[in-house]
């Protein structure tokens, strides 16, 4: 392989084995192609791919700060426009960079109609700093800043609905995806980069280290999230949901029991009350997006 030309997201990066963020980066560039400029936020993906003097990026790539990738991308887009250049601009960030600290810049860039695609790899906590809760951490997940304890069931709030917030900015295309469905994800990336204006994709990226499962299960866990209704894959075009992945739903327990971050819901004894609340979240998702496959009688 050393003799072969570089992949657009190349070997030698330092992500954990089985890392969904690394897989997402690879899939994004396979879909977007080499005529792409990537603007990365600080985070796992930035750190594992660019320890000086090594870079895993085969496309032009820039990292500035944790919270400003949308603003930096706005500048890149403006500069390309003035130079008459054709590269597509993709801003990449984890959920902390995206739904929390970067909100100001993202909101500004979307409101201005910036012609770029923002992709959030959502691993549902601040993983680079050691698994702290973010606005995208799901209800009851135990993290290092929302630990389960004698008087805590873990994270007390549900996930912030950033796709809806950005759709409300008038974004022409907003989608959710999962690394567990690579072809679907790539199709959405390809679609987003070719739609003028600000597009947003939030890709579910199960984190073996942060969630507590073996690296080989990354895709299996991602599939379970969708099959239980705790993650919904959908597309919104001009504010309307246009496509939803339908499933034959499984109980949320099937997903929860596979991950250490929810272990406190089952040990020392099963917490039926909290599990029922999580089941309600899945039920509401299913109802809202119409994900359930209804068998004909």
């Amino acid at each position: 392989m050393t003799d072969k030309p570089c992949n657009l997201f190349d070997v030698g990066h330092r992500a954990c084995g089985g890392c969904a963020a690394a897989l997402a980066a690879k899939l994004i560039l396979e879909a977007a192609g080499k005529n792409t400029i990537v603007v990365s936020a600080t985070g796992c993906m930035e750190v594992f791919s660019t320890p000086y003097p090594e870079t895993a990026w085969g496309v032009p790539w820039i990292h500035s700060l944790f919270e400003n990738n949308s603003a930096v991308a706005s500048g890149v887009v403006a500069s390309l426009k003035k130079q008459g250049r054709t590269e597509k601009v993709i801003a990449l960030g984890g959920d902390g960079a995206t739904v929390d600290i970067g909100m100001l810049c993202i909101s500004g860039a979307f409101e201005r109609g910036t012609d770029f695609t923002y992709i959030c790899y959502d691993n549902e906590a601040y993983m680079n700093t050691g698994i702290q809760r973010s606005g995208a951490t799901p209800y009851d997940a135990s993290t290092t800043t929302s630990p389960a304890g004698k008087c805590s069931f873990g994270n007390p709030r549900p996930k912030k609905d950033l796709p809806a917030i950005l759709a409300a900015h008038g974004a022409p295309y907003v989608a959710t995806a999962s690394v567990a469905y690579p072809a679907d994800f790539k199709k959405k990336v390809e679609k987003a980069v070719n739609i003028p204006g600000p597009c947003y994709i939030q890709v579910h990226a199960p984190c073996c280290t942060g969630w507590g499962f073996e690296g080989e299960k990354t895709i299996a866990i991602g599939k379970l999230a969708i099959e239980t209704g705790l993650w919904v894959n959908y597309e919104m075009e001009n504010g309307e949901v246009t496509r939803v992945k339908k499933v034959r739903r499984k109980p949320v327990e099937d997903y929860l029991t596979e991950q250490k971050r929810f272990r406190h819901l089952f040990r020392p004894k099963k917490n039926d009350g909290e599990i029922a609340k999580i089941q309600q979240i899945a039920d509401r998702n299913a109802e809202k997006y119409g994900t359930d496959i209804v068998l004909k009688k």
Binding site: M1, T2, C6, D10, V11, G12, H13, R14, S49, T50, Y52, P53, E54, T55, A56, W57, G58
Partner: peptide
Amino acid sequence: CTAKPGNARDNKT
């Protein structure tokens, strides 16, 4: 603090 592509390969994971 820039880099050209290709040299992540120096890191044999």
